[in-house]
Every structure is written in structure tokens, then in C-alpha cells.
Design a protein around this nucleic acid. Structure first.
Lengths: 211, 211
DNA sequence: TTGAAAAACGACATTAGTGTCGTTTATAAT
DNA sequence: ATTATAAACGACACTAATGTCGTTTTTCAA
């Protein structure tokens, strides 16, 4: 169907394979997904898939990279809303994703993270370390911007708060896999998180009418 | 070495197998551990191991049960220290365990939890659900006891706080696997947690000298 | 002692996946 | 049309684990 093809063709094919992989990973998680599953979902042969990716770890890494590109800009400075509004809207987004956990990559992500742990210095390992630190830094920057704008008055180091926020979200995720969003009371927990962040960041109250 | 043996013998053997299993699980986590690994560590044959456990999932479930028996009594009422002291000492214990993550079962636990997710209604699944709820309940009871004793004045529902606490600890754990306790700044994050709990629970200050 | 019971052994059949590679097939340039 | 190229195919050899089961060994009771 395609010898001596353009870069563009290969790019599209690659994306199509990643799309198929995503489907499978969402359904089966990382550990139980096989190359065969992805071939079946994409409707291609063994040879075709292996022409694009060396092994499953590679597939997942590339998928993660691709997905991250979307996510990345959430904490970009934004002048139309306050720092606090921006933060809560990010948290709402996370909440939504956790509540629809079956239709997200969160399970696969966690499995992938754990599977990497034992490996020596490694492409995937490096990427994940980086990813974590990028995320943390984004939140730190964002807290500092908010502080500079006098919208926030942090009572703890921004970095600690950032890592804390990430930990909590990751943990809520992990627990929700096993038990479902009802048993873990996602909503109630998010309320607690917001309460604690308010205490830490002391956002200035937004009054409905600036009189 | 032991036909027609006493219940006691079988019990000891079983414990010895679990001890060996624990060693392996600490080192390799859950997913990568095989029955073979456990046989080697315990120095027994395939047949012997399978006489006690049906499969790895079964081994791990029994190990977890056994380990839990120890842990369980941490939140029992205690008249020699205040509720807040008790809580912080539990958190310290968690912190220690996370910092020595390589010598604990935490990684294996997380992997096990995730591996269970996909399974249908299941012995392991039921046990984990139960375990989570037992833990939550223990913390709730404990907060309520503290409240009754006038040592705590919770500003949020005890159950929400309990689940929140569990989520955070689980998340910190998960992140620390990938990155090690330095990169996740375990200490700093625990500080944030304590800060937030103080705000939620409003423990009465302990004065050094009740004058 | 001795022999029945069952604990422990370990070879084996089975299952499930991986990554390779010789072959087939579609495409685009000539 | 023809043909060089390389994409796609899929059989295959290999690896690694699982759970079973006939055999061997050990212990305890008679």
C-alpha cells in the first residue's frame, strides 16, 4: 500500500498507529497490552508496527509525548482570569478526568510509571523525570506570577505546594482505579484539596461587584 | 521433609514461604516477580510452593493480609498521647517508609493494586476495597475521638479528611518510586501535609507547662 | 521396624508473548 | 508499461512463564 512514500504519509501512519495504541491502552492499561492488541486495533501486520516502534515501551513513550504536547500550555500566563481561577479550573479538569477514569490514559500512565521504576538509566526514565519536573515548575511559575500580581500570598514555599498538589492528584487517581470514583468520593476530596490550597495560598477574595 | 505433619508445621512452612516472597517482592515489585523467584528464594520446589498457594496473586494477597495484621492497631485509642500527636507519629512512620522505599513493599503494593483493577469481582479486589475502607474508617474514628476529647475541632467532614490523607500518602508514594525521595522532596511535602491538616483539624496547642 | 500418608520434588506440556526476516505487494519515477 | 524501492505481511524460532502430575522421599503411627 505504500513503498517510497512521502514523509507526510509516514507521519500520518504513525499517528494512526498511536491513535490505535491509545484506544487499547485506555481499555487494557499498560501492563496487559500487547503488540498484538495494537496490531489488531490498527488493522496492520506485525511487520508494519515494528517498522515504526521497537517495542511496547517505545510505543507508550511516544504516545505520552504526543499527549503531553496538548496538555502543556495549561499554565501559560493568562490575563483574562486570576491565578486562583486558573488553578481551580485546572483542578476541575483533573477531577473530570479522574471521574471518567475508564476513558482516560491515567491507569496506563500509572502502570507505565511503575514499570519504569526498576529499569536502569533509560530513555523512558529520563522522560518521566523531566515530565514531573516540568509539571512542578509550571505550577511554581504560576504561583509566583500570581504572587507578583498580588493575587496570592503563599504561606509555604511554592515548590513544596506544587509537589504536594501533584502527589495528591496522583494518589486520588491511584485509589480511584481500584475503587471507582464513588467509593473514593472524588468530589469531597477535591473540596478538601481546595480548602487546603486556599489556606496555603490565601487568594484575594473576588468580589462580584467592585464598588 | 514432612508428610503427615502437624498443623503447626504447615503454619510455620507457610510463614517461611511468605517471608521469602516478601523478600522477592521488595526487591522486584509485584509485576516482575515470578513463582520461580519465590521458589529460589525459599529454596523449595515448584510442587511445594503450589501446595500452599494457587498462583502469585494468591501469594501476594496472603502476604498483604499478614502484613496488615501488624499495621492494624496503630489507630487504636491511646490515652498517653493526644490525637494530634498520634496522627503526626503515624505520618512520620509513613514518611520513613517512603524514604526507605526500596526496603518496603510499597512498590509491590501499588503494582498489585493496579493489576487488580481490571479483574472482575474477585477475592483480591474485595480485600483491597475492604482494606481501603478499614483504613479510612480507622482515621475517621480517630478524628472523632479526638473531637470528643476536645483536642480537635475539624472544619471539614472527618471522612473527607481521612480519604484526602490516604490519597496524598498514596500519591507521594507513587511519585517517589519513579524519582526517588530527593527529587520528590518527601520532607517538604510532609510539611505541607501537616500544615494543611492543622488548618483542617485545629488541634489545640500543647503548652509545655500547664500553669 | 515397617508401611501408609502426604510433603516435596522436578520434568513436562501448555500458553502467550516477543522480535526477526524472507516474501509479497503497492507505489511512484522513468 | 516497466521496474526499483521499500512498506506491509505473516510464518517462525525463541523465550519465559504457568500449572499439573507421576515419582521420590520423609515422617509418624502402629
Amino acid at each position: 500500500m505504500a513503498p517510497r512514500v512521502s514523509e507526510d504519509y509516514k507521519n500520518r501512519k504513525r499517528l494512526e498507529l498511536l491513535r490505535a495504541a491509545k484506544q487499547v491502552f485506555m481499555k487494557k492499561g499498560y501492563t496487559r497490552t500487547t503488540m498484538q492488541d495494537i496490531m489488531d486495533e490498527a488493522g496492520v501486520s506485525r511487520g508494519a508496527l515494528y517498522a515504526y516502534f521497537d517495542n511496547i515501551e517505545h510505543v507508550y513513550r511516544e504516545l505520552l509525548r504526543h499527549e503531553d504536547e496538548q496538555e502543556l500550555h495549561f499554565f501559560d500566563p493568562d490575563d483574562t482570569s486570576t491565578a486562583w481561577q486558573q488553578l481551580t479550573s485546572w483542578i476541575q479538569k483533573q477531577k473530570k478526568e479522574i471521574e471518567a477514569i475508564e476513558r482516560s490514559l491515567l491507569l496506563a500512565n500509572s502502570e507505565f510509571f511503575l514499570s519504569i521504576h526498576s529499569q536502569p538509566e533509560n530513555e523512558s526514565r529520563r522522560y518521566l523525570t523531566d515530565r514531573y519536573q516540568r509539571m512542578a515548575e509550571a505550577i511554581v511559575d504560576f504561583v509566583q506570577t500570581g504572587t507578583a500580581r498580588m493575587e496570592l500570598q503563599p504561606r509555604l514555599p511554592a515548590e513544596s505546594i506544587a509537589l504536594y498538589l501533584i502527589s495528591f492528584i496522583d494518589g486520588l487517581m491511584l485509589d480511584t482505579f481500584q475503587l471507582g470514583p464513588e467509593k473514593t468520593r472524588v468530589s469531597a476530596q477535591i473540596d478538601v484539596l481546595l480548602f487546603s490550597l486556599k489556606e496555603m495560598l490565601c487568594p484575594v477574595e473576588e468580589t462580584a461587584s467592585p464598588s
